[in-house]
Design a protein around this nucleic acid. Structure first.
Lengths: 153, 153
DNA sequence: TTGAAGTCAATGCAGTTGCATGTAAATCAT
DNA sequence: ATGATTTACATGCAACTGCATTGACTTCAA
């Protein structure tokens, strides 16, 4: 999938953007995870699942989460196991495809999502909203979304 | 450090930028790590250390890495342990501060960095360089760098 | 149909990260 | 100079991730 990797040949602008990107991400994630931990809440990965399940009324499958969250299959599998053990989700047999199971939020899961959002949102605001105008945020979205568009062959 | 987290109140633009940011990062990191693994090389975190040590001729301390790489102290500590075991770095007593040790690249460490860059650079180019013009890359850098500036109190 | 190929999910094992805490040395306040 | 605080680093333990493989089921082709 990757080209032949011989001459590095990166423009300084690209390299700097890459560095800025990595640093910004680490900084932001540290802030988010710290807030969740400080409040005694589980990590962001759990929240992501809770939110996806909440949004999709229809019972999602693990493979749907995998694609939406860009998380590896085995990590989804085990994350769901832990969340089921914690009473946040439950899984029901899928009549249409007996390989997989449908995922559902429990009341406790739904409640947790609702508790975590008021922790999460202010961090987003602090980290991103406070630093950028809405216009800049839109610019950022546009630039970032260019990064994973399908390229023409 | 965080405000009082009561009303979420995020603009749609900010929320979308946040999502785009997280997705772009997962996408990019998956590509980078996949390339390193495919070549039989260690993960990006190892490369980061190798590069920092190469750039800083003077023996860095673990705490310097912690700050430059935004990695937690205990992770730096254990990453260095693993890299030392792998023969990539060595640590010498610091005459000026006997709590810590100075870090140095071994020949093997330096060689590994030089081998990994030709894997890494093309991924950066693919993920970021191919999608953005230099001008856009500079815009992105500016926007991202706003995210972790010290804010005026 | 039916057997090959593909898809959905789980798991053993090793590597890595997070949390809490510990130890030693430096620094600071008095 | 000396006890309290801070700084640098390490580590036990639990949680999480990555890799490779497996099992179960579905789909596709002939």
């Amino acid at each position: 999938m990757t080209s032949k990797e011989s001459p590095p040949k990166l423009s300084a602008a690209v390299e700097e953007a890459w560095i800025a990107f990595l640093r910004a991400h680490r900084h932001n994630m540290a802030a988010v995870e710290a807030e969740f931990r400080a409040g005694g809440y589980p990590p962001l990965s759990w929240y992501d699942v809770l939110l996806e399940l909440k949004r999709a009324q229809t019972g999602l499958r693990a493979v749907d989460l995998e694609r939406r969250l860009l998380v590896a299959q085995y990590n989804v599998s085990r994350l769901l196991l832990r969340m089921e053990r914690a009473g946040l989700i439950h899984r029901t047999a899928d009549p249409a495809d007996r390989r997989g199971r449908r995922l559902h939020l429990t009341d406790r899961g739904r409640q947790l999502q609702e508790e975590m959002w008021p922790i999460y949102a202010p961090v987003i605001q602090e980290q991103l909203g406070a630093a950028l105008s809405d216009d800049e945020a839109r610019q950022l979205t546009l630039l970032l979304n260019k990064l994973h568009q399908e390229k023409p062959c």
